[in-house]
Amino acid sequence: MLVIIFRRLGQSVLVLFLVALISFLIFRYVGNPVDNLMGQEATLAQRAALEEALGLNDPFYKQYFSFVWNALNFDFGNSYRGALPVSDLIASRLPATIELALTSAIFALFFGVITGIYTAIRRGGYLANIILSTSLIGVSLPTFLIGVLLIWLFAVELKWLPSFGRGDVVQLGWWSTGFLTLSGIKSLILPSITLGLYQLTLIMRLTRSEMLEVMRQDYVRFAKALGLSSKQVNYKHALPNTLVPVVTIAGLQLGSIVAFAIVTETVFQWPGVGLLFINAVYFVDIPVMSAYLLLVGVLFVIINLFVDLLYLAIDPRLRDSNSSE
């Protein structure tokens, strides 16, 4: 088991170095740090001096490692727009995105698993079929369209919920939270549903098909033959075996929640890192793009690693078999 963990760690570090390389290439060669700092009217001599001072004439590997070193110290340079340090920008925006992503992930996992189990157990039932057909539309509906339609219904027509922003936030140290105010929580509802709906349908369909698969297995039939109640069979035998792959996929989906947060944040003008990133793309703000890529890369690698470890923790077969390798 330790071997596996170390191998995974090694892979993760490798991926991180590659992501850092891409970030660096974007940072160094797509953007031009000198233009950024000096503006067009600087003389050639001034530019050359700055290039030397920034280390742009150093060998490639040296520049790369200084980039990684700076990144490890949370130094990503300054944004082209407003000239603020990128790390400050990201730090001030991160809480909003994390709160949104977590809320919608929990929403998607909770309702996805419940409806998945329901549609598997009540296979062919009236309500189950309705849920299934609706989910098909859900898969085809682009995230931004869900958001726009929700705004239209709940913000414009019914006026129940706010259509943009985070509402009032409470500052806890450097972390700003919307969980502690009523307007903050109300503002969170529509974006979370928008962001979570696709994952919800995905998790539901996965749970359902896994559950149906597991219910065909001999150990479930055996449990039934032994006279266990359908509750015991469904929830103690079928469900845990269903959840192993579901948890894995759901964990990996956290990554795509972070990515689709960009879309949701744009629709709802949610002040998170996604909105920061899309504006950076729009205005070709290279340092912000490069830092965002690095941030997301680290996040994804951590999520993947965590899911792998979780998988090891859930399944006793893996726990033992790996030690004998």
Partner: peptide, 22 residues
Amino acid sequence: DIQMTFPSILIAMLIFGVARGL
């Protein structure tokens, strides 16, 4: 494998941004 760790929409945005930068 590495590309698959990232959702394709994010990759597309990134490529779009880089291309615009170039």
